[in-house]
Nucleic acid binder design. Structure first.
Length: 312
DNA sequence: TGCGCCATTCTATGTAAGGT
DNA sequence: ACCTTACATAGAATGGCGCA
């Protein structure tokens, strides 16, 4: 049985990103804080360590005010290499990471990469984005709220100041505990490492949509010509569906289509073309069933695009 | 061959929110 | 100050077509 690792990072930055043999670092992690929860989301441990900066030795104006840490405080910290190793060891096997927002896991991996440590995995990592889950549980599912706002809204104790790693991890854990099973299923994926092969691709079906994270491609044309990506298969019956709205794009990055399944109705497909860390392209495709009203909205969206491109 | 016309595509920019 | 995400929109560049 693996544990939930609810963690938070504090980081600092320089005037400009630092470069060292081809690798760049924009944010340097200066503190790791985490709370360990068991399967029942009961707290069974804490982790809190400071990190002595090796790259940005001055506290940046903005971050200095924000994170309540000075360079003197960090003097006593360990090296990132040591602290990161200790942290991962403390996490135990197959940790299920949870954080407020999608940035921490990305920055952690970016720092691992820069400082020459092995990455967490050779493919995207599933994690619990408590910020997104908070929105799904208590809001419209789309807006993103600050951690302090969420704590306030849930009327949780907020005696300890925000913006220290352990404090924020603890707050995040308290919020995480309130989510029901339905929300917990809405897992996110960090794509700092994108799939390199078909085998590493991600395909996951949620209660009301399917998500697919593709391997890398060189050009947009390669993406758009790819049958697997541009096909509209019902993700429940696995049959190819006839498209009612052809693929269209409002901006060249996102593509939409709507297909129709006899059994399950209108299925909206959305293809987002994204840039991987290495500059190559990969695709996040989501498919979900929509109501006839939403189908009308999609038609309007398409008309709007056409109108803009083809005004009378 | 050059021109205008129109549709498409790409690029840049702007908003607004979140993170340190 | 730097980054992320999502969603808009404006303008330039590109490309196909008809026609002189």
């Amino acid at each position: 049985m693996s544990n939930f690792i609810v963690f938070d990072l504090e980081w600092n930055q320089g005037e400009t990103p630092a470069t060292l043999d081809g690798k760049t670092l924009t944010f340097e992690i200066v503190e790791i804080g985490a709370v360990k929860l068991n399967e029942n989301r009961e707290k069974i441990g804490e982790f809190s360590r400071l990190i002595k900066p090796q790259v940005f030795k001055e506290m940046h104006k903005i971050t200095g005010k924000l994170i309540h840490l000075s360079m003197e405080d960090l003097e006593n910290g360990g090296s990132f290499q040591d602290v990161a190793r200790d942290f991962l060891e403390w996490c135990g096997p197959e940790p299920k990471f949870c954080s407020w927002g999608p940035l921490d896991l990305r920055e952690f991996q970016s720092n691992l990469d820069f400082f020459g440590l092995p990455l967490l995995a050779d493919r995207p990592i599933a994690f619990y984005d408590a910020q997104k889950m908070y929105s799904l549980a208590y809001d419209d599912g789309r807006t993103r709220k600050a951690l302090s706002t969420a704590v306030e809204e849930l009327k949780l104790d907020s005696d300890i100041p925000f913006h220290r790693a352990l404090a924020d991890a603890a707050y995040t854990a308290e919020i995480f505990k309130t989510f029901d099973e339905r929300v917990l299923k809405r897992i996110s994926f960090d794509t700092y490492v994108t799939p390199k092969s078909k085998k590493q691709e991600i395909r996951i079906v949620f209660d009301n949509y399917e998500k697919y994270i593709s391997r890398e491609f060189d050009t947009k044309e390669d993406v758009l010509e790819n049958m697997e990506i541009m096909s509209t298969k019902c993700y429940i019956c696995h049959k190819n569906l006839r498209r009612k709205i052809k693929w269209f794009s409002p901006n060249g990055k996102h593509y939409y289509a709507v297909a129709y399944c006899d059994k399950h109705g209108f299925m909206k497909a959305k293809v987002r073309i994204k840039k991987a860390e290495n500059g190559r392209l990969f695709v996040v495709k989501t498919c979900k069933f929509i109501s006839p009203e939403d189908m009308e909205d999609m038609k309007n969206k398409q008309r709007k695009v056409k109108k803009r491109q083809n005004p009378q």
